[in-house]
Design a protein around this nucleic acid. Structure first.
Length: 435
RNA sequence: GCCCCGGUCGUAUAGCCUGGUCUAGUAUGGCGGACUGUCACUCCGCCGACCCGGGUUCAAAUCCCGGCCGGGGCGCCA
């Protein structure tokens, strides 16, 4: 077995290394056998390099092995780096040894080189193989970059990262259905949101964030819903809606800027010319959106939720710039949302949309226990079932605000993918529980 | 859950409307062969498929019904 520590990645190869001996490990991406000369493309986590095996200039057994290789074989190569004008990357490697570490079946279910495209459904069935394609290499490296930015951005602003339980006892905080699980004979549920926990924690650490899965047992069937998704949640004490909107705005700009700067190769693979949004993002009151839609002749009235169709019409006027819709009717928001002091029908709440899709939502939360209990009742819920949460509002709950951001929704819109499943490694939807 | 559309080699598709010349075409892939600079190598030969069940008919990939699966639109959705 080859040793990892002497290994060189394809990204480390350069024309300046001309003449150096290197050890490479990776997968056979493609083989072009011209008879007395064979070209093998070796792929590792960083990229692809061409191995050139020419009769007469390599040992004859190396030529034989090269001819016998098939796509996706795992190989170990020892060879000499050669500067080359003919090879596309400006370099190639002349192997003096090729060792097959792991043989692949000759027929691979999907084409990893990307020449013969497969449907999304087929790709998801063979997801691990699909993930070897350049497109996915780019998508998930960008996702990683986004996560890094989020963490460093929030940490710089005094937030600490927390983890809240995903197996919870008490039922709902609202309408969405929860998955039931058997917890040593007791009924438990998978958390649909860290909302209540992060509010409690902001009465301790003041600024907390969590990046974790959320579960929704909803039978939706769209390109932008999943039953398990990664939610980026923050909660901030002594803050209101405007504070956390500005924080979100800064974060989004920082994400775009950083991806544009650090992921050039990835964006190039995806054919994306990323435009960094400008601050401040347009802000529209919910009532303005309704007025606009009514003007356009659409039948909708104050108090209705905005459908995808409504948002598609409205977003035409905004373009690709992310924008806020704020001051939503209190009745459309969850019970913990703070109603406006001067008009309790409206609430201090907002959504952040990119085009027609809600990417994040948040607002000022209620910190007054009596008001919170009243709102729970008004939403048709039982304050009794929230008693363990409500008790902490007796012991110094600061005013606070926060938001939740759908990581994959942001990524999907940023990278202009048509389906959220494309930007999730192993998507869980209504019909898909495997792989 | 509703409306519309579809299911053909490993993958992506043509054929279906107008049933029989479909022994199901093409591309890519796989196998065998030729080729010393390919980079979607090229060229020659071969391999490989009509979602399942029922019906109509002399005859079904093709028409009809049901099921399952998939795509688009909507709904559901903190």
């Amino acid at each position: 077995m080859p040793v990892c520590r002497s290994r060189v990645f394809t990204s480390q190869l350069s024309p300046e290394m001309d003449g150096r001996v290197v050890h490479l490990l990776g997968w056979v991406h493609d083989v072009r056998d011209l008879g007395k000369i064979v070209f093998v493309l070796l792929r590792d986590k960083e990229g692809i390099v061409q191995l050139t095996i020419k009769a007469g200039s390599v040992p004859s057994e190396v030529l034989e092995i090269a001819k016998s290789l098939s796509r996706e074989d795992v190989i170990h190569v020892e060879g000499v780096v050669k500067k080359s004008q003919i090879a596309k990357l400006g370099i190639e490697v002349i192997p003096y040894k090729i060792e097959v570490i792991s043989k692949s079946d000759r027929v691979v279910p999907i084409d990893i080189t990307g020449k013969t495209p497969a449907d999304l459904n087929t790709r998801l069935k063979y997801r691990v193989l699909d993930l070897r394609r350049a497109e996915n290499w780019a998508i998930f490296r960008i996702q990683h970059a986004v996560l890094q930015v989020i963490r460093s951005f929030l940490v710089e602003r005094g937030f600490i990262e927390v983890f809240t339980p995903k197996i919870i006892a008490t039922a709902t905080e609202g309408g969405a259905n929860l998955f039931r699980v058997d917890y040593f004979g007791k009924v438990a549920y998978l958390a649909q949101s860290p909302q209540l926990y992060k509010e409690q924690l902001c009465a301790v650490f003041e600024r907390v964030f969590e990046i974790a899965p959320a579960f929704r047992a909803e039978k939706h069937d769209t390109n932008y819903h999943l039953n398990e998704f990664i939610s980026v949640d923050i909660e901030m004490a002594f803050a209101d809606m405007f504070d956390v909107m500005e924080l979100l705005e800064d974060l989004i700009v920082e994400i775009y800027r950083s991806v544009k700067d650090r992921c050039r190769r990835e964006l190039q693979v995806l054919g994306i010319d990323l435009r960094v949004p400008e601050k401040p993002f347009p802000r529209f009151k919910y009532s303005e959106v309704i007025d606009y839609l009514v003007e356009r002749g659409i039948e909708v009235k104050w108090g209705d939720d905005l459908s995808t169709y409504h948002l598609k019409v409205f977003s035409e006027r905004v373009g690709q710039q992310p924008y806020f819709i704020y001051y939503w009717p209190t009745a459309l928001r969850p019970f913990y949302t703070k109603p406006c002091d001067d008009n309790p029908e409206e609430s201090e709440s907002f959504d952040l949309n990119i085009e027609w899709l809600e990417v994040a939502s948040g607002g000022t939360r209620i910190h007054d226990k009596d008001l919170l209990e009243r709102r729970i009742r008004e939403q048709g819920l039982d304050p009794q079932s929230f008693s363990s949460h409500l008790q902490f509002f007796k012991y110094g709950m600061p005013p606070h605000a926060g938001w939740g951001l759908g990581l994959s929704r942001l990524l999907m819109m940023m990278l202009r993918r048509k389906d959220i499943r494309e930007v999730v490694l192993y998507p869980r939807d209504r019909y898909r529980l495997e792989p």
